[in-house]
């Protein structure tokens, strides 16, 4: 089996150790870092998505596939030269203050990276001001916020208020999601988009930035 097929299988099968090993071996052979993502890791995560849609894969399988993709991405990203990947845009993303859940956010990040978005991961328990500061510093075109508890989702209101105050609200798109957040709340909040799940979040961002076909 060639390295592309092996990588695809390792990523879709959620084997992060094997995926990283194949990435190392391919780099050693002189494969371009961008190709490692484009020809191996991305097809792997798309395969996982396909198996999910047909009902063969369950959420844990998708999460393990996303983790394997992340392992390859972390290895390859520092080696990418400007122009290796034509990014669609930059997304700053995090879980709101008081909330330590990161599974959903990590899944969205993996999907965004597969869809050629540059992602700045702020992690969990992110203070409102830190969202605004990072969006400004990184010149993001999308700010993503996740809340997984009803007790924490209200923090999003503070972030929106600070974005407004900083004059950023009109310059970037705000997309929210997470188990606690509903479409109605997202609309009430004044968010530009609501990601019902990780796949939908990418579709929403594509649509907001004009990448939908």
């Amino acid at each position: 089996m060639d390295w592309e097929a092996s990588m695809k299988e390792a990523v879709s099968g959620g084997d992060e150790v094997e995926a990283a090993r194949i990435a190392d071996a391919a780099l050693e052979k002189g494969v371009a870092p961008g190709d490692i993502l484009e020809k191996g890791a991305v097809p792997g995560i798309y395969e996982a998505g396909r198996l999910w849609r047909e009902g063969t894969f369950f959420l844990p399988d998708i999460i393990l596939a996303a983790e394997a993709f992340k392992e390859v991405f972390v290895k390859v990203e520092p080696l990418l030269k400007s122009g290796d990947i034509a990014y669609k845009g930059k997304v700053v993303i995090g879980t709101v203050q008081g909330d330590a859940h990161d599974i959903g956010k990590n899944l969205v990040i993996a999907m965004l990276r597969c869809a050629s978005y540059e992602v700045v991961d702020l992690g969990v328990d992110v203070a409102p001001y830190a969202f605004v500061k990072a969006a400004c510093e990184h010149e993001a075109c999308v700010l993503g916020m996740g809340a997984y508890m009803t007790t924490t989702m209200r923090v999003m209101e503070e972030v929106i208020r600070l974005l407004d105050e900083a004059g950023l609200k009109k310059r970037l798109k705000v997309v929210v999601g997470g188990a606690a957040v509903t479409r109605a709340y997202a609309e009430w909040l004044g968010a530009d988009g609501y990601g019902e799940d990780a796949v939908r979040a990418v579709e929403v961002i594509d649509a907001l930035l004009g990448w939908s076909r």
């Binding site: 330590a100 859940h101 990161d102 924490t152």
Partner: peptide, 14 residues
Amino acid sequence: LIWRKHSEPDVDTS
């Protein structure tokens, strides 16, 4: 655990 002022403590998953 992570302790905060106004919400319940959480396991530090990191």
